[in-house]
């Protein structure tokens, strides 16, 4: 967070100096970032909730775009590409501190977002939703539960899970998707 920034205002444009005006990839990265900013904000807000984490994630998303050498050719389907980057980011990137690459000479000053975060009502509502979802875990089939648990909690790869459960990797993936799908149904029906 910028020290001294006015956290009471909603600021949807990056503050500070515009990124180094270098055409080509970085310009393109900036353009698609701005074009899809609302969508990505919505995504990170749902998953991360805390404004500081959301801001970190948006910053990291931009940096990953700016660092991608052949971004234009990879980005035929822009939304799909961005959501793929964002997915990888939340799945494994956020436990580490972000390291801002100084090589880029890009100054996308830290996003300033409305700093109030979720209201107590929203936080409680999410907690209740998740509790309902938790009870769905018991209704999963044994394979679904075991595969999803091992893959997520024990961080086992699909190959490791398939060798422990003695089924094919295809079956492990099917169980994982089925588990996620049933949990999502439970979340959806409670909101």
């Amino acid at each position: 967070m910028n020290p001294g920034s006015d956290n009471k205002t909603v600021d949807y444009a990056p503050v500070g100096n515009p990124p180094a005006a270098r055409e080509g990839e970085k310009g393109f990265a900036f353009r698609i970032y701005m074009q899809h900013r609302e969508s990505m904000l919505g995504f990170f807000r749902r998953v991360l909730r805390e404004p500081e984490d959301v801001a970190d994630a948006m910053q990291e998303l931009y940096l990953r775009l700016a660092r991608q050498p052949d971004l234009e050719s990879r980005c035929q389907n822009q939304k799909a590409y961005l959501f793929t980057v964002a997915t990888n980011l939340v799945n494994d990137g956020l436990r580490k501190k972000y390291v801002r690459s100084l090589d880029l000479h890009v100054s996308l000053d830290h996003e300033t977002l409305e700093a109030s975060g979720p209201s107590p009502e929203e936080a409680e509502s999410l907690r209740q939703q998740l509790r309902l979802v938790q009870s769905t875990c018991d209704a999963l089939s044994d394979g679904e539960r075991q595969a999803f648990f091992m893959h997520r909690v024990n961080r086992m790869t699909y190959r490791e899970v398939s060798s422990e459960l003695r089924v094919s990797e295809r079956t492990v993936r099917r169980w994982v998707v089925q588990a996620l799908s049933r949990l999502q149904d439970a979340l959806g029906s409670s909101s």
């Binding site: 919505g42 749902r46 939340v90 799945n91 938790q134 875990c137 997520r152 909690v153 949990l183 999502q184």
Partner: peptide, 20 residues
């Protein structure tokens, strides 16, 4: 997009033992 974000939320929530 909202459904996808819910899946992201659950995928990462399920990594925490307390969830189970």
């Amino acid at each position: 997009e909202a459904d996808y974000a819910n899946c992201a939320l659950l995928w990462n929530a399920a990594e925490v033992p307390e969830f189970w």
